[in-house]
């Protein structure tokens, strides 16, 4: 699996498709921290949302960077399409962990906060960033070219899902009572964002539940993707 992840990372970096989402991510974070001092948890909530958007974009560019024939050859060598898709997913998880660490540690390294962060807040920030990044990636899995043929549809769907995700709490408030259970379908981005912003006043159990919801959401989507990917056709170019 390590060889597969290494190959996928090399292939992705050579494709240069990473450049746009990574550049956008860096610019957005730089702009956020232009001035100092910054409020700790509010800033982390903002960078977590940026990471959600960035990871969804990175996920889409990563999953679409390979030529279909390149994918076919690797699947045959692995003798399993599911293994290939698992490798891709793990590569994206690795990228998410690295980016989450970078976004959490950057303001500390450059002293952008007025007060010490403390290990509890740091732990929450890591958890929140990883959860948001994984949700972003799990959404991109279903919008890759082998699932949504037209890239314009995929981008449109991605933007729509992002808007619904970020405005999730507000949208849920507008739903009639009978439709409120539908909120479980909305990616739990706004809930994690709210939890991070109010982390200082919320009980640990509430925060844990919110993060667990996001991790579970991402895990369910990833599980569904891997289940389905083993039964798909990879013969078309």
């Amino acid at each position: 699996m390590m060889a597969l992840i290494g190959y996928m990372l090399r292939s992705y970096t050579r494709s240069q498709r990473y450049f746009a989402p990574f550049a956008a991510l860096v610019i957005a974070v730089m702009m956020l921290y232009t001035y100092k001092p910054n409020p700790i948890m509010n800033s982390y909530a903002a960078t977590a949302v940026i990471l959600f958007v960035g990871c969804a974009w990175i996920g889409l560019s990563f999953l679409n960077h390979e030529h279909a024939v390149q994918r076919q050859v690797v699947i045959v060598h692995l003798r399993s399409a599911r293994l290939y898709c698992t490798g891709g997913l793990l590569t994206l998880v690795l990228l998410t962990l690295l980016l989450a660490a970078a976004l959490v540690l950057y303001p500390l390294a450059t002293r952008k906060f007025a007060e010490p962060v403390g290990s509890y807040r740091l732990l929450l920030a890591f958890g929140g960033h990883i959860a948001m990044g994984l949700v972003g990636i799990s959404i991109s899995l279903f919008l890759q070219a082998s699932w949504v043929r037209k890239s314009s549809y995929a981008v449109g769907l991605m933007l729509g899902i992002m808007i619904i995700s970020i405005g999730g709490t507000k949208i849920t408030g507008l739903l009639p009572e009978a439709l409120v259970p539908l909120r479980l379908l909305i990616p739990p981005v706004s809930a994690v964002m709210d939890a991070l912003m109010n982390a200082d006043s919320l009980a640990g159990g509430v925060l844990l539940t919110t993060f667990a919801h996001a991790f579970l959401y991402a895990a369910l989507l990833a599980g569904l993707y891997l289940h389905r990917s083993g039964r798909m056709d990879y013969g078309k170019i």
Partner: peptide, 20 residues
């Protein structure tokens, strides 16, 4: 059809061999 991947043949075959 085999595409012109952004690898050298040696890099590509090494990657495929390691994966296998």
């Amino acid at each position: 059809i085999f595409p012109g991947l952004k690898f050298t043949p040696e890099q590509y075959l090494q990657s495929i061999g390691r994966i296998s």
